[in-house]
Amino acid sequence: MLTALASQLPEVPDEGGQLVGRCRAGDEGAWRLLYDGHFDFAWRTARRLGLPEADADDAVQEAFQVAWARLHTFREGRFSTWLYRIVANVVSSRLRKHRVRDVFDGLFGRGPADATSVEGQLEAREALGRVERVLRRLSREKREAFALHEIEGLTHEQIAELTGARVETVRTRLFYARKEFAMHAHAMGVEP
């Protein structure tokens, strides 16, 4: 029951049922409906998992393309849950590249390459960039648990459903994620 996320979704008739069936049959109109109904959700998920805004469009595009190619593997349940996992995968892979870039930037004495930290940007955007960098430092599992709970406001049970993990596991991940986040956040001047 993804109440918080579902409340953000526009009305999509028969979510995950008939529409997916029509998409499989090659109905472009159905695909457009599915896309329109889930774009904001996918974009928000990507951002809240720590992906910079400059990358969000590309990540969402990639996620929808993957969803299309693998639509035949969608069996049952909510389409949004299935799509969430694809988005999370895409985000994870992109953040990995960001982390490598951050490490190299650190090695060569430059600050992490980020559009939001360019000189002259607004302070709020800089703060946003710092939060993204802190999120990037967490492992995928901890980042998901942290973002879904602290930012999305989902319960442990909802996170467990979304990520396919056990509730106890989510609790543990969250515990360590908070500790790590607080540590990195303090170092980067992000208020806990």
Binding site: Y35, D36, F39, D40, W43, R44, R47, R48, E53, A56, D57, V60, E123, A124, R125, A127, L128, R130, V131, E150, I151, A185, M188, G189, V190, E191
Partner: peptide
């Protein structure tokens, strides 16, 4: 480095995609 309340700011900034993104 200034301290900012990150949670609300981040939530708002990531709430909706920019216009025209879809």
């Amino acid at each position: 480095m200034s301290h900012v309340p990150w949670r609300e700011a981040y939530r708002q900034a990531t709430e909706r995609p920019p216009p025209g993104a879809k």
